[in-house]
């Protein structure tokens, strides 16, 4: 059944092997490839070979433990993070746990937690190399803010997902905050998360030119 079905499906293939495509050896292909190979390489952290995969490349190859380890030295959200962001940065501590790996489903909205505002947390110094280790990471525009829940339409996935919509859920009964800022409908935000919890301390926030530049540097391509 398998081979027969595959063969039948192959007959529906709009790009079956009989359809010509451009060889890598044609002059226009060579021009394209030369241009690409002359593109300057950006500095990239290489501590985690799966970290700066394009888009959502093998997030699944990361273990939950690895994700949790990263989470340990990043950040937590809500009021605590807001306060910490206000006074600068420090060193991180603590296992904030968090369930589930940071994998992302295709299609349905991705749900991320904005963390527990009652949990104490600390920050580490902002570093693009650390930002590059974050997954998922995306740019999204707030389309609704309802109490502790914010819906973002994804403008661009830097890594770790392909959902079109992301819902950020804060602590019940408190307004949703991102690194101390209230969400505003129509405003674009840059967001990273680990273990399903949004990172703060400069690793997520309104899409300022500075943060956008940092994301571009951390997630080239």
């Amino acid at each position: 059944m398998n081979d027969e079905l595959r063969e039948q499906l192959g007959r529906l293939d709009p790009m079956h092997p009989g359809v010509p495509v451009e060889s890598a050896a044609t002059p226009s292909s060579r021009t394209r490839l030369e241009q690409i190979m002359n593109t300057p390489l950006l500095d990239q952290p290489t501590t985690d070979p799966t970290s700066d995969q394009p888009g959502a490349i093998p997030v699944a190859t990361r273990t939950t433990a690895e994700a949790r380890r990263r989470r340990n030295w990043i950040v937590l959200g809500g009021a605590a993070a807001a306060a910490i962001a206000a006074i600068g940065s420090a060193v991180i501590i603590g296992d904030f746990g968090g369930g589930g790996a940071n994998q992302v489903a295709s299609g349905p909205p991705l749900e991320l937690s904005l963390g527990d505002s009652n949990v104490m947390s600390s920050c580490i110094m902002f570093d693009v190399a650390i930002l590059a280790d974050m997954s998922p990471a995306f740019a999204g525009t707030a389309t609704s803010v309802e109490g502790s829940s914010v819906t973002l339409t994804v403008d661009r996935w830097y890594t770790g997902g392909d959902a079109d919509t992301v819902v950020l859920q804060g602590s019940s009964g408190t307004p949703a905050l991102i690194d101390g800022f209230e969400f505003v409908v129509g405003q674009q935000y840059l967001v990273t998360a680990a273990d399903g919890i949004v990172n703060f301390c400069g690793y997520s926030g309104p899409a300022t030119p500075e943060l956008t530049a940092a994301f571009d540097a951390a997630f080239p391509g």
Binding site: R32, I36, L41, Q44, P49, Q53, P54, I57, P220, G221
Partner: peptide, 13 residues
């Protein structure tokens, strides 16, 4: 083009 550029930049992976 975009895809090849990503491949070029992340060739190590």
């Amino acid at each position: 083009n975009d895809s090849l550029l990503v491949i070029w930049r992340r060739l190590e992976h």
